[in-house]
Design a protein around this nucleic acid. Sequence first.
DNA 1: TATATATCGATATTCTTTTATCGATATATA
DNA 2: TATATATCGATAAAAGAATATCGATATATA
Lengths: 227, 227
Amino acid sequence: MGRELSSGVRCVDYKSVSVQTISRLPKYLNYLKALPKGEVTNISATGIAEALGLNDVQVRKDLSLVSDGGRPKVGYAIEDLIYDIEEFLGSDASHTAGRVGAGNVGRALLSYSGFAEYGLDILAAFDVDLALVGREINGKPIFPMEKLSEVCAQRQVKIGIITVPNYEAQHVCDLLVQSGVQAIWNFAPVHLTVPADVLMQSENMACSFALLSKHLSEKLKPARLSK
Amino acid sequence: MGRELSSGVRCVDYKSVSVQTISRLPKYLNYLKALPKGEVTNISATGIAEALGLNDVQVRKDLSLVSDGGRPKVGYAIEDLIYDIEEFLGSDASHTAGRVGAGNVGRALLSYSGFAEYGLDILAAFDVDLALVGREINGKPIFPMEKLSEVCAQRQVKIGIITVPNYEAQHVCDLLVQSGVQAIWNFAPVHLTVPADVLMQSENMACSFALLSKHLSEKLKPARLSK
DNA sequence: TATATATCGATATTCTTTTATCGATATATA
DNA sequence: TATATATCGATAAAAGAATATCGATATATA
């Protein structure tokens, strides 16, 4: 974790927290928040692990990266732990985002509760459909596509969210990159090309389903005999 | 890969293909399908790797699990490779599914193109909203919740897709399990509890966003000085 | 106060995944 | 036909992640 520089100053890599750990943190958060408030104010890593079907050492290790509130025999104070995880996940100054495409996927995203806790602030949406332009969704204005560059540049939008049909996706992506966006969150099921310095994260429902489907097949016929 | 049984018969584990590999296959498929049809009929693992920003050995290894069409100096026949990947991903008899919740997320899922290729056949939707009941979305009927058990049992629905608000999710999940569903695909951002023999896969947009956000922060300030 | 126990944090081990290396082979070119 | 090269598949090495083990410590109980 971190590495020693010649100056003797320690350089903490953000990377030191693994992708897997970061992905599990929101799950802990969900679980902790759903816990009944009342008499019980503490929880152990073992307890979380059991409830979520994970290994207790793994949970403890994950939590040790974001909190130092764990005490032997006592566990973690639930309130404090929630605070620590949120602090860790949202600490990096909130990222302003612009969303392109106001169709079903775009709206679904907005209806997803609690993005703000993670530091996501969707400023505005853009769409080619003039019937939608001028209206608001969840209090966010919908602009015409022509406004994209202007708004993104002016408001220093860092994340571009793409929820348009496949055939438009690369074009929209290029527009966003030109407008200074530094990360793309892509929901169109196509591979998009960006310059090396732009971050790209694609959500692909087909990937998720492929996993589920394969696991289900495994379950239904756990072993196949060959040769 | 596989293990030797006392009988001398080889038992091929489905598990032998890793989660990561299964998740990458749909990406290869996307990429291959987007390739211009014409003169060039072949592609190398190196080429795919370069285009998708992956390691060429990894791509070759992934592909070797689903295809044996790779030839030195030539690569893979694009058409055949597409066929092989689809065959692998969708081969396990198509899984019939029922979807609960006909809101934005539910509709977004349907609008996602090409699930059929992966063996997903969504039979019907269920919703408590009586205004929706009786209507159709993308040709799929919407039934009232009371019909859930009946329809699931009758049509042997294996996968239940949950796209309802958090507070209903566990209840709906229990209903699905009671109705004989063997796998749950959950889009509500809460942890759901199921019997050990039921598969559960949760999509959590917050997890995805947490990842993107952390990566972006890394990028914006690649190193932080401490001590 | 002494002892037992739940739980933590750290270290060690095992397992999985990724990446590197190398010999084999199909095609192209001299 | 001989040689060069792109590419494959297999094996080996390295990196990374999950799990197991163990000593330390805070609380509860005898």
